[in-house]
C-alpha cells in the first residue's frame, strides 16, 4: 500500500441486519476514499448518511459487509497500528467515576506509556483543553462541553499519527470551538493526519484540506475545499476607502467591458467573530485587573 496514504478504503460497504439475518439498512455503499498523510480530511453528511458507520468500520468497532479498509498501511484490526491512532467518539464515553487526571492516566497506561511521561502528557493536555480548574472533579460532574474537551485530550494522549474525530466541536461554546479548531490546525502543522466528521459545515470549511460528502451511505462528492467551493466565473474584490463616485465609475467601467455585476455590498462581520472579540477582550481586561491586584 502507498505509504503516503493514511487511510484507504476499497468498496467499503456495511449492511446492518436484523436479528434473523434479514437485510435491514444499507448504511454504507461501496465507499472509496484515500486520505493522505498530513492531511485534514472532512467527512460531511446529514444525519444517517454513514459518517459514523465509516469511522466505526475504520476503527474495527464493526465489521464490513463487503470491501476493506487500511489505516496507516495496515488492516483495521491490527493492534500495533492502534497505538498510532487517536479517536474521539461522538458521544463522550468514559468511566464517569474517574477524574480528568485518572482518565488520562488510564488511557495512557493502555498505550504502555511510562508513568513519568504519562504525567507530563496529561498535564500538558489538560492545560491545552482548558480543564485545569476541574482536573480533580469526577467526570460525572462535567458538562457536555467539558466532556468533549477531556475526550480530545484522551485522543491525543499517545501523540498519535492519525486522529479520528467524530463531531469534535459538538457541545462546545464558540471559544471551545475555536480552541478545538486551533488544536486541529496545530496537529496539521505537526504533520499529523486528521479525519474529521462533522455536520457543522463552517468548522469543516475553516480547517479541512479536503472533504467528502456522504448521503444515504453513498459518496456524493470529494475534493479540495477550493476546488469544490470556488466559482471560476466570479471575481470577488474587497476595496477600502472608495467614494460613491469612484464606485459608480467602476460600475460603468465594468459594464462597458461586458462584465456583469452580481452584487455590491458592505461586508459584515460574522457573529462568531463578534462573539470571540467581545469575550476575549473582556477576559483580557479581567486578567489585567487580577494581575494588577
Amino acid at each position: 500500500m502507498d505509504k503516503t496514504l493514511a487511510i484507504k478504503t476499497n468498496n467499503l460497504t456495511k449492511v446492518y441486519r436484523s436479528f434473523f439475518g434479514r437485510k435491514k439498512v444499507l448504511a454504507l455503499n461501496k465507499l472509496n476514499i484515500e486520505i493522505k498523510v498530513g492531511e485534514i480530511f472532512g467527512l460531511l453528511g446529514p444525519n444517517g448518511s454513514g459518517k459514523t458507520t465509516t469511522m466505526k468500520l475504520l476503527l474495527g468497532l464493526i465489521f464490513p459487509t463487503e470491501g476493506n479498509a487500511f489505516l496507516l498501511g495496515k488492516a483495521t484490526n491490527d493492534i500495533k497500528t492502534k497505538s498510532r491512532i487517536g479517536f474521539l467518539p461522538e458521544e463522550s464515553c468514559f468511566y464517569r467515576f474517574l477524574n480528568a487526571d485518572e482518565t488520562l492516566d488510564f488511557y495512557g497506561q493502555l498505550f504502555n506509556i511510562p508513568k513519568k511521561e504519562r504525567k507530563v502528557r496529561a498535564d500538558s493536555l489538560i492545560k491545552l483543553v482548558g480543564l485545569e480548574f476541574a482536573r480533580k472533579r469526577p467526570l460525572r460532574q462535567y458538562s457536555k462541553g467539558m466532556l468533549r474537551r477531556i475526550g480530545i485530550a484522551q485522543a491525543l494522549i499517545n501523540d498519535p499519527d492519525l486522529i479520528i474525530l467524530d463531531e469534535p466541536t459538538s457541545g462546545l461554546d464558540p471559544i471551545g470551538t475555536k480552541e478545538t479548531k486551533d488544536i486541529i490546525s496545530e496537529l496539521k502543522k505537526q504533520g499529523k493526519t486528521v479525519l474529521l466528521c462533522s455536520h457543522l459545515l463552517s468548522d469543516v470549511q475553516d480547517i479541512c484540506d479536503r472533504i467528502a460528502i456522504l448521503d444515504k451511505g453513498t459518496l456524493q462528492v470529494s475534493g479540495t475545499i477550493d476546488n469544490l467551493l470556488s466559482h471560476k466565473d466570479l471575481v470577488e474584490m474587497q476595496l477600502r476607502n472608495l467614494s460613491d463616485e469612484t464606485v459608480e465609475e467602476l460600475k460603468s467601467f465594468i459594464t462597458e467591458r461586458d462584465g456583469e455585476i452580481v452584487s455590491i455590498r458592505h461586508p459584515s462581520n460574522t457573529l462568531e467573530n463578534l462573539f470571540l472579540k467581545i469575550v476575549q477582550e473582556r477576559r483580557k481586561s479581567t486578567d489585567s485587573v487580577t494581575h494588577s491586584q
Binding site: L59, G60, L61, K82, S83, F87, Y95, L110
Partner: peptide, 9 residues
C-alpha cells in the same frame, strides 16, 4: 466506554 478502550491497542 468500550469504544474508547477497544480502539486502543
Amino acid at each position: 466506554v468500550l469504544w474508547t478502550i477497544t480502539t486502543k491497542p
